[in-house]
Design a binder for these strands. Structure first.
Lengths: 348, 348
DNA sequence: TTATTGTATTTAAACGTTTAACCAATTATA
DNA sequence: TATAATTGGTTAAACGTTTAAATACAATAA
C-alpha cells in the first residue's frame, strides 16, 4: 500500500495542513537549514552565492513559507509581545487606549495581548501570571486598587512595565499619566468663572491615587464650599443617585457637579434626566473623558479630555525604551484640556 | 576574582532576571527533567515515588517555577491562543464583543490576541498573516468588505475560524451572527405600527451582506414607500447629513428614520440635533446596537439590540469545537430584540 | 536458576528557529 | 611552493518543554 502525504494527511486529528518549515525549504533546495535561515533573514550578506540565495527565496515563495514566531521566540528569548491590562476593555476609555497601543506596538513589530482586570487585584495577578507564562516582553498596566504587591513583584523579577493612567506614588516606577490635579482644577476653575458657587464632586470611594488627585485638585480650589459624593465601584447607579440627592438636600443646594470619570458622568446625567433637572440652568455639569454620549445629551457636555493618543503612544515608547534598557527610570506626565460645551455655560 | 551569580547578572543586557526552568528544578532535586515534567503535569500518577514527587513539587514552589508557555506551545504545536480581528476595537460594538470573547476564552484556558482591520482588506490580510505566524489555534473574524479571498485562504490552509457578525453567503463556513433581515423587520414593523408612513433608511454603501440584509429586511416591508440614504464609510458625518437632507427635501418628507448601525445612529442624532428637529415628534428614530449615548439623548433611543453575550460566547464555543474537529460545519444564528424607548413612540 | 512482572526513573528525540564555530575549496600572497 | 585569506557553505548546540521508549532494579513466578 502506498502511503503518500495526502493519505497521511487523512490521519491528522483536524483538517489542518502542516505548515512549511525552514527544513522543508532546505531539503527541497538541497542545502542546510542554516543557510536557509541566513538567506531569509538577510544575514551574512555577500557571503552567500547568488544562485543559492535565489533558489532559497524562490522555494520560500513556492512553498508559501511563513516563519514560526513561536520557535523564533523560544530561541531568541523574546516574543515581541506586550501584555496590556486595562480595567475593562468594554469601557470606551480602555478600548480607545487599547486601540492606540495596538497601533503603536504594531508599528514597532510588537503584538498586544489584552486582559481586563475588572478593578480586581486577584484578576490582575492572574493576568500577570498568565502573560508572564506567555513570556511577554513587557507590560502596560492600569493597576487597580490594592495591587501594590503585584507592581512590586514585577519590579522584583525585573520585567519591563509601565503604569498607565493609574500609579502608586509610593512605588517609584515608570509611568505615563496626565496631571490629574490640574485637570480637575481646570474643570473647577471653569465652573467658578461661570458663576457657579456650590460645586458637588462625584468620585469613587477609592484609594486610587489618580482619582484622589482629581478630588484634591477640585477641593483645594473650593475649600469649605466643596461637597463630595463618594460612589462604590460596584454600586454606581445607586450611589450616584444618592450623591445627587444629597447635593440637592443641602441647605444650600449645589449649582454644579463635577464628575471624575466617564462612567460616573453618564450615570449622573441619566439620573439628572430622570429627576428632570435642567442642565445647565439648574445644575451645570462637567464630566471626565470623552464619549459619544456627551455630545448627544441635549446640552452637550463639557468635559476634561485626556490626550488619549499621547498616553497610548508614550506608554508604548516608554516600554520599548525600557525593554532596551531595563535600568531606565522615566515618567511622562501629560496635560488634559477642557472641552467647553453647553452643559456648563448658560450663554452657549 | 569570584564570579557568583549576582555578578554574572550584572552583565545581562537588561535588569531582567532569568526565570527558573524545569531544568533548574531537576538539577536541584537531582532527577531528570522528564520526571519533573511528569510530576508537575500529574502524568504517570502512581508510578512515581511519593518522596520524589514531594521534593519536586516543593522545589517548584521554592524556585517560583512558572511553565514557559512558549516552549510548551512549540512542542505541543498548540498555542492556546485565539486571534480576534474586529473592525475597530475602539468601537463599542467591537470592544463589547472582545470583552465577552476574552472572558469565554479565558475560561477555556485560551488567550486572545486582538487586531483592528479598520474595514480594510489589506490590514485584514496583514493581521491574518501576523497571527498565523504567531501560531494561533484559530480565528474569530469580523470580515470587512472584499475579503472573500482571505476567508478562502483560511479555509484552504485548514485553520479553524469562525466569522462573527459579518459573513459571505457564497462561502460556506462557520459563522455566528444575528438574523439581520428579521432584526430590521422588527424595527420597521414597530415604526409602522406606531403610525409612521414614510420611513427613511440610512445604511452604508457597501457589499457587506449583513448590512444589506438589514436594508432588505426593511425595504421588503416598505415597498415603494421606502427611501434609502447610503453612506460612504469614510465620509460618515457628511453623507449622513446629506441623506437626512435628502429625506427632508422629498415631496413627501420622511416621518421616521431607521439607522442600520450604531455609528450611523449617533451621526444621525447629532445631525438631527443641529437641525433642531424634534424626536420623535417630527421624526421617529430607531437605531442599531446598544450604546450609552442612546440613553442620554433627550428622547432615549429605540434600538435593535444584538445579543452580544450570545454572539461572543457562541463564537468561542464554536471555535473550540472546530479546533477539536476541523471538519465540523455549523453556523449559529441568533435573534435580535427591539428595545422600545421614547425616540420612536409619541405616547411615551 | 531463569523468566516475568512491576515500579521508578532516565534517555533521547522532537517541536522550528538562530547562530557561533567549524570546514572545504578556491584564490591570493609571500 | 607553502601559506594565508577569502568564499560558500555545514554542523551542532541551544531555547524549554513533552513523551515514547529504554533501562535499572527489585520482587515474584516458573
Amino acid at each position: 500500500m502506498q502511503r503518500n502525504t495526502s493519505s497521511a494527511f487523512f490521519f491528522l486529528p483536524s483538517a489542518m495542513k502542516k505548515r512549511t518549515s525552514i527544513k522543508d525549504i532546505a531539503s527541497q533546495v538541497g542545502v542546510s537549514t542554516a543557510l536557509v535561515s541566513y538567506v531569509l533573514n538577510n544575514k551574512k550578506e555577500g557571503r552567500i552565492s547568488k544562485e543559492a540565495a535565489a533558489k532559497i527565496k524562490q522555494a520560500a515563495i513556492d512553498l508559501n513559507y511563513q516563519p514560526n514566531q513561536i520557535a523564533r521566540s523560544l530561541q531568541a528569548q523574546k516574543t515581541m509581545t506586550i501584555g496590556l491590562i486595562v480595567a475593562d476593555i468594554a469601557n470606551p476609555f480602555s478600548s480607545q487606549i487599547a486601540r492606540i497601543i495596538e497601533d503603536a506596538a504594531q508599528k514597532a513589530g510588537y503584538s498586544v495581548i489584552v486582559g481586563s482586570s475588572d478593578e480586581k487585584a486577584v484578576k490582575t495577578e492572574k493576568l500577570i501570571k498568565l502573560f508572564l507564562n506567555r513570556q511577554v516582553d513587557g507590560f502596560i498596566i492600569a493597576f487597580p486598587e490594592n495591587t501594590q504587591t503585584q507592581a512590586q513583584y514585577l519590579k522584583q523579577i525585573g520585567i519591563p512595565f509601565v503604569m498607565i493612567d493609574r500609579y502608586f506614588p509610593e512605588i517609584i516606577s515608570n509611568c505615563v499619566s496626565i496631571n490629574n490635579y490640574s485637570a480637575a482644577a481646570l474643570a473647577i476653575n471653569h465652573l467658578l468663572q461661570n458663576g457657579r458657587q456650590r460645586i458637588g464632586i462625584v468620585t469613587y470611594a477609592t484609594t486610587l491615587h489618580h482619582l484622589n488627585e482629581r478630588k484634591r485638585g477640585a477641593m483645594d480650589l473650593l475649600g469649605d464650599n466643596s461637597v463630595v459624593g463618594e460612589v462604590r465601584i460596584d454600586h454606581v447607579a445607586e450611589d450616584v443617585s444618592a450623591s445627587i440627592a444629597g447635593f440637592l438636600a443641602l441647605p444650600e443646594p449645589v449649582d454644579a457637579i463635577f464628575f471624575t470619570t466617564n462612567l460616573l458622568t453618564i450615570a449622573g446625567l441619566k439620573r439628572l434626566n430622570s429627576l428632570k433637572i435642567k442642565v445647565p440652568n439648574q445644575i451645570a455639569v462637567v464630566g471626565f473623558d470623552e464619549t459619544d454620549a456627551f455630545d448627544l445629551f441635549y446640552a452637550p457636555v463639557t468635559y476634561v479630555r485626556q490626550p488619549m493618543t499621547g498616553l497610548g503612544s508614550e506608554a508604548v515608547n516608554l516600554l520599548l525604551e525600557l525593554i532596551d534598557d531595563g535600568n531606565l527610570l522615566k515618567s511622562v506626565t501629560l496635560n488634559a484640556e477642557l472641552i467647553v460645551q453647553q452643559s456648563s455655560v448658560l450663554s452657549l
